[in-house]
């Protein structure tokens, strides 16, 4: 049995906004699954539908084998959910927040103290367990929030953009906990706009844009769609005319054909030959009178995946790109 199964899920808000337009998911137990997309793509709406905060307008969803419409309480008992916005009671201490969560999820009274201590240890808040949450930093609040989602040892944990707004150190810490929870057998459902986050954590990904899944696969699968490694060249004079000229030089070399793209600082070339032919390109550019001030060859990142899938990259305003076919 799949941990999460969704068929043809559509969610239409009362104001007519079609936030999710036919999403299918099948997530096996124990998988670390990532839902990747820009702001407004439908990630949060999907996750809220899976945890019974929203009712799907159409389609069928089972979580842990329970129907989200008819067995909502059973679904709620069996999942942990960490909302996008940090959700802790700031007037209570860390320990009191966890105690409330234990009680709310029916953790037997005899197990509560032990469970609370374990979780405070896990998220490294044991020494401040009796301090009020309003004295905590953003990262500490997030960690407390994550701990409260785990009190009932749920087989599935939903994380809605869990590291948004955290500094890199705090983010790395949370990633460690998530890996640890997943390693213990918990199915993880993560939404993120951080491409690096999905790459680091997830076994499998779906990319969502404008309420539809536009691509699915392992991070490696998705990267292979990009069509090779990426070679980025920075020029001393990145004016549009010079860049256009450099672009024509690269194409004229006959190696890279249509793989050349103009960037703000110079050129980017995506090709299986990128590593092997980097030197040739540099020589051609030098012969044409260019000064190359920077060079970077890397495996495709998920940013590049977005670019390949949408032709536009992650939109600046984080709104879904227009006219993207599923």
């Amino acid at each position: 049995m799949a941990a999460i199964e969704a068929r043809g899920v559509e969610v239409v808000y009362a104001d007519g906004t079609e936030a999710v337009r036919g999403v299918d998911l099948e997530i096996p137990e124990g998988e670390f699954f990532g839902f990747l997309g820009p702001n407004g793509a439908g990630k949060t709406t999907t996750i809220k539908t899976l945890v019974t905060l929203l009712r799907p307008t159409a389609g069928d969803v089972t979580v842990n084998g329970f129907d989200v419409r008819t067995e909502a309480r059973a679904v709620r008992r069996s999942v942990g959910y960490m909302a996008q916005e940090t959700s802790v009671d700031l007037e209570l201490t860390a320990r009191e927040n966890l105690r409330f969560a234990c009680e709310a999820y029916g953790v037997p009274a005899g197990e509560r103290d032990g469970r609370i201590d374990e979780l405070l240890d896990l998220v490294e808040l044991a020494d401040v367990g009796d301090r009020r949450a309003d004295s905590f930093s953003g990262g500490m609040r997030k960690r407390l929030d994550a701990a409260t989602a785990l009190v009932h040892r749920p087989p599935i944990v939903f994380l809605d953009e869990p590291t948004t707004g955290l500094d890199p150190k705090a983010r790395n810490r949370l990633w460690d906990y998530f890996r640890e929870i997943n390693a213990a057998g918990t199915t993880m459902f993560l939404t993120t706009q951080y491409l690096e986050e999905a790459d680091r954590l997830c076994d499998r990904l779906s990319v969502i844009l404008d309420g539809r899944i536009v691509a699915s696969g392992t991070p490696a699968d998705l990267k292979s769609r990009v069509g090779g490694d990426v070679l980025e060249v920075q020029l001393d004079d990145p004016s549009p005319e010079r860049v256009a000229f450099a672009s024509s030089v690269a194409e004229a070399s006959g190696v890279f054909d249509e793989a050349v793209r103009e960037t703000e600082t110079g050129l980017a070339v995506t090709s299986p030959e990128a590593r092997a032919r980097a030197t040739d390109l540099l020589v051609d550019l030098r012969d044409a009178g260019f000064t190359v001030t920077g060079l970077d060859v890397h495996s495709p990142t998920l940013d590049d995946v977005f670019l390949a899938l949408t032709g536009a990259g992650v939109p600046e305003d984080a709104l879904p790109a227009e006219g993207v076919a599923p």
Partner: peptide
Amino acid sequence: GTAVEGAATRAREPA
């Protein structure tokens, strides 16, 4: 990691 152990084995067994 004891806090998270055994979660998978309890898949159909809510609290």
